[in-house]
Simulated scan of single mutants.
Amino acid sequence: MNDAPQHHELPLADYDHLPSGTLPSRISGLDQNGIEQLLSYERAHGNRLPVIQILEHRLEALKNGAEPSGTSAPTTPEVSQTSTGSHVSPATAGPPVNPPSQGVPTNPSQPR
């Protein structure tokens, strides 16, 4: 399909990295055009059956009178650009990794 949208044209940021389990809530605010864009992109690129089924189900619901939720797409903590985890420092780092007692096969001074 040559008319499939490009990644940067999709209505969901980082669509390719979203877990399919979160997709129904992520697309709830999209209109019919947005769902059709994602469906076209998915068929041309990933062609993942579960994802296509989710998109087709939502598209059918919109065609049957369902309304977009009216809210913008939820944030995507799975692909967040901000770092909120703990930072490793020498004071918080774990112990050094010790080689196994039987020796390291790549180290000639420690035969197996």
Results as ranks from 00 to 15, higher is better:
L62E: 02
P105A: 09
P105Y: 10
T76K: 14
V104E: 10
S80F: 06
D14R: 10
T76V: 07
V97A: 14
N64G: 11
A66P: 08
I52Y: 02
E60L: 12
K63W: 09
G46S: 15
H17Q: 11
Q53C: 02
G94L: 06
L30T: 06
D3Y: 07
L18V: 05
S20D: 03
G46T: 10
K63V: 11
E78W: 14
L38H: 03
S28F: 01
I35M: 00
R26V: 02
E60P: 01
G70F: 06
A66Y: 10
L10G: 00
Q110N: 13
S28W: 02
H57K: 11
E78S: 13
D14E: 05
G29Y: 03
L10N: 04
L30N: 05
L39K: 01
A93L: 08
H57I: 00
S69M: 04
R58S: 00
N2R: 10
E56K: 15
Q110A: 10
P74Q: 14
S72D: 15
A73D: 06
A13Y: 04
A13T: 07
P111I: 04
G85R: 08
T84C: 14
S25H: 06
P90K: 12
A61Q: 13
I54W: 01
N64A: 14
G94Y: 04
N107C: 09
T22K: 03
T106L: 11
E60I: 05
P96D: 12
L59P: 02
L62P: 09
G46L: 13
N2G: 11
A66K: 14
D3L: 07
T82E: 15
P74K: 15
I54E: 09
I27A: 02
V79I: 10
V88K: 07
P24C: 01
V79L: 13
L59F: 04
E78M: 08
H45F: 07
G70W: 05
S72T: 14
L62T: 07
N47C: 11
A61S: 12
L23A: 03
A66W: 09
Q6V: 05
A4K: 05
L18C: 03
L30F: 07
S25N: 04
A61T: 09
E36A: 15
N107Y: 05
L59T: 01
H17T: 00
D3C: 01
P11W: 00
E67C: 09
G46A: 15
G103E: 05
G29A: 09
E56H: 10
K63R: 15
E78Y: 11
P11A: 02
T92E: 04
H45L: 08
D31Y: 02
T22C: 03
N107F: 06
A73G: 06
S20N: 06
M1W: 06
L10I: 02
S40Q: 10
R58M: 01
N47P: 07
N33E: 07
L10H: 08
G65A: 13
P19H: 07
T92K: 11
R58Y: 04
R43K: 13
P74I: 12
D3V: 05
Q32G: 07
N33G: 05
R26E: 08
P90R: 12
L10C: 03
E9T: 05
L38N: 06
R58G: 00
A73K: 08
N98S: 14
G21M: 07
R43W: 01
E42Q: 05
P111T: 02
P50H: 09
I27N: 01
S101I: 11
L38C: 06
T22N: 03
P96K: 15
R43S: 09
H87F: 13
A61W: 04
